[in-house]
Design a protein around this nucleic acid. Structure first.
Lengths: 259, 259
DNA sequence: CGTAGTGTTGATCAATGTCAAAATTTGTGG
DNA sequence: CCACAAATTTTGACATTGATCAACACTACG
């Protein structure tokens, strides 16, 4: 796999072929995975009080990272799916007191930050891959911010469901076929992600169900009327596409890196 | 300046001294600044419809980047100050339709994305610096998200003022002394940044003024009672510190990069 | 001066939060 | 497989925050 080639002298590769800027999968960089760790659903992967933090590479299961406010309020910042990198912010000094909790049975590889940085130092491909992942985090946050700050509860919930739906589709993990996925989140957590009360989330989902837009039993989400849900959410098609296939190689056709 | 040395063979530098992971200042990487561009207050630096985008290095003045929603609503994503890098998200395929507008007289260096990437390819120091800047963007967004999603109007506005105050302090730009800075933002823009109505921002600021917490005439903000403002905002001291001096070198004392 | 942009004020309204209790689901040990 | 406990979801009544609308005041700048 060309990704693993060490660029000999620090010069840019001849073409993009040798550096597809695909985000969301670092397994190519971790040929011999270090010891995998494991948490049960609900356990903390990292707590807001942790001093030293590792960067975490998700190999299986879901987790979320959150920011705790003084008064106990919680804001969920990211939902992490397999292939994601958690805690890149520790590369610099990280200020926010944030934590990470397993949503499902959760498997991951903790990567020592210093070692990761040392590796990246000698491997521009890895360095840029990390940057791409950091940027991806920012794009997701940007959308969430616009969502929470400027959209109604209906729109937010619709958006959130679609986002998760699309993201989980793009990842090599068993999630059921068709328009049906398992969303192992309590409404409480959905609320903390979109900035609402769990009570209001309940009402909103209920309304969607009543309108025949979704079916949502247990943690099984079925999007019955995707068109309608998209209309409600005012979801950007481009964005959907990107969420489903975050591989930039095709789009830029060789323009990302060129000497 | 050691930062400019090309790491000879892709190996990590011996100590942090040769790689202070200081964010927010790229001038060291741009010894011979390419042509500087210039916009007047209110002009667009980038529009949501732009196809090809440059990464923008801010040399003087303020700007903000925003996300426009379908229905005309606007969410301000970042306030950019001198030393910041705008548009890193274009490193990957950028999906969101966002734009950037000059707040004041605004001077910047447009950096061709491909060229920047090509440079970073051969220079791990630059690559990591870019990553640090991307991460910094994420941290700011994270705080804003928690703010908008979970805090009251009072808290948000207080937070916003303090954040800008701290950020502008850390930057080499003339902003007046003491607890007085110039915030060249209309209340309209403050509103779009913190997810409120300009009317409500007006009321909130008015209340702060009435309580003797701030003075705010024209665009001149004077924090009369910082303690009180901090109490209202529930601002994290760590975060304040970080905003004022985002230089990570000291904190990590040589631990960031080590082979 | 006059005009456009910005800020202020008050009245009213709608969306969402809060509280409390009941209904339902999930998980667990026997 | 059951019974029970705990967690989650749902419902209704009510409170509150911040939005909306509309008018007016102020400011800045040509």
């Amino acid at each position: 796999m060309t990704l693993l080639q060490r660029s000999a002298s620090g010069s840019a590769p001849a073409s993009l072929e040798s550096f597809p800027l695909k985000i969301g999968d670092f397994s190519g960089f971790l040929p011999n995975l270090p010891a995998t760790c494991h948490k049960k659903a609900g356990e903390q992967v990292a707590t807001p009080t942790d001093e030293a933090r590792n960067v975490i590479y998700v190999t299986a299961g879901w987790a979320f990272s959150y920011r705790l406010l003084d008064d106990g309020r919680r804001q969920i910042l990211h939902i992490h799916l397999p292939g994601n990198l958690i805690g890149l912010s520790t590369i610099t000094r990280d200020v926010a007191a944030w934590g990470c909790e397993a949503i499902t049975e959760f498997t991951y590889v903790p990567l020592c930050r210093d070692a990761l940085m040392a590796q990246a130092w000698g491997r521009p491909d890895l360095a840029l891959r990390i940057t791409a992942e950091a940027v991806r985090g920012e794009i997701l946050l940007r959308e969430r911010l616009a969502d929470v700050a400027r959209r109604s509860a209906r729109e937010r919930v619709a958006n959130f469901l679609l986002e998760l739906y699309c993201r989980s589709q793009s990842i090599q993990v068993e999630l059921g076929a068709g328009t049906r996925i398992s969303i192992p989140l309590t409404q409480d957590k959905i609320a903390d992600a979109v900035g609402l009360t769990s009570i209001h989330v309940s009402r909103t989902l209920r309304a969607f169900k009543a309108a025949g837009i979704i079916r949502y039993q247990g943690h099984d989400l079925q999007i019955v009327d995707p068109g309608n849900l998209k209309r409600i959410s005012t979801f950007d098609d481009q964005y959907i596409l990107w969420l489903q296939r975050p591989n930039f190689a095709e789009q830029h056709s060789g323009k990302i890196i060129r000497s």
